[in-house]
Design a binder for these strands. Structure first.
Length: 197
DNA sequence: CGCTCGATATTCT
DNA sequence: GAATATCGAGCGA
């Protein structure tokens, strides 16, 4: 399956955040015990956009540092950061060429492939708890700083985003960002409404 | 269910 | 030293 290309990510960050809803995040892992590649995946169901100097909630607000440098680099690449002493979070860099920095935080997935492997990595049985948060995604897919600045547009990449065949028929909710205390006027969180049960 | 706490990277004060 | 784009365990109502 093909991946959104560089131009997909070279647009305003909040547009990219909204359009990533319904796409598929794919992680390829090497299983050393049987020398096979394991494919893990999930449908992206929740994202948040983070801007640059005009967005007080963004890591890029105060300018370029070593940590946030992927937000200023080539679009379509991962930005992985460590937070609260315990957790990694996965972003994709995205911005129009009018802006200096920007990234989309991937907050939640609906697990699709390799669920038993993700269960093992998270030490969890509950599928509803498997990838329902930014830290959980990274734990379930074995993502850490070694996956920083990878090319998400490369169909061979160990970490990439793919188009999905089936149409998105679910409505996308637009709200304030979670746990953001500044810049609360920006409605830059996008999510599928919970599946009707 | 809701609250608090511990894990301790990274940046800013 | 304090704040932060988090999570899960432990506790009490």
């Amino acid at each position: 399956m093909s991946c959104p290309d560089r131009s997909f990510y070279l647009r305003p960050t909040e547009i990219v955040a909204k359009e990533l809803i319904g796409k598929r995040l794919v992680r390829i892992l090497e299983d050393r015990s049987n020398h096979r590649l394991e494919r893990l995946s999930g449908i992206i169901v929740e994202t948040e956009a983070y801007g640059n100097a005009d967005d007080r909630a963004s890591h890029a607000y105060r300018g370029l540092t070593i940590r946030n440098s992927p937000m200023f680099g080539e679009v379509g690449r991962t930005y992985v950061y460590f937070i609260y002493g315990n957790h990694f979070c996965l972003n994709v860099s995205a911005r129009s060429d009018q802006r200096r920095a920007g990234a989309v935080l991937l907050r939640a997935l609906e697990p699709r492939e390799g669920i038993h492997i993700m269960n093992k990595l998270r030490n969890s049985q509950n599928i509803h708890d498997l990838t329902s948060g930014p830290g959980k995604i990274c734990q379930a897919m074995d993502i850490s700083k070694s996956q920083n600045y990878l090319d998400m547009t490369d169909p061979q990449s160990e970490l990439r985003i793919e188009y999905v065949k089936e149409d998105c028929i679910r409505e996308i909710a637009v709200t304030q960002r979670v746990r953001v205390r500044y810049a609360t006027n920006k409605k830059w969180r996008f999510a599928f409404n919970p599946v009707p049960s």
